[in-house]
Amino acid sequence: MTLLEDILLLGLIVTAVAAPLCKRLMATVIVYMSFGLLMAVLWVLLESPDLAVTEAAVGVGVTTILFFLTLRRIHELKGTKDE
């Protein structure tokens, strides 16, 4: 159990460093989404199922949708450049 926790904590640091270093904003948002998913698994290991459910629904789901919609609005996704 401790080993899994350590791996998840290391994964959190790696994804947090990697997310803003990506060149394309789309990749940034996807890596940030994996950060939130690791966080949700970590909440389960910390024995807080309420937090895990909320993080998975709100922190990962809705936030990522909002980021993607913003990227479409500011023409950063492929195919939305020339309208």
Partner: peptide, 17 residues
């Protein structure tokens, strides 16, 4: 600015952790 928002969210998660 979008990366700034991502950084802000990471700060939030750190406080929660």
């Amino acid at each position: 600015l979008v990366k700034k928002v991502v950084g802000f969210n990471i700060m939030d998660s750190a406080v929660f952790l």
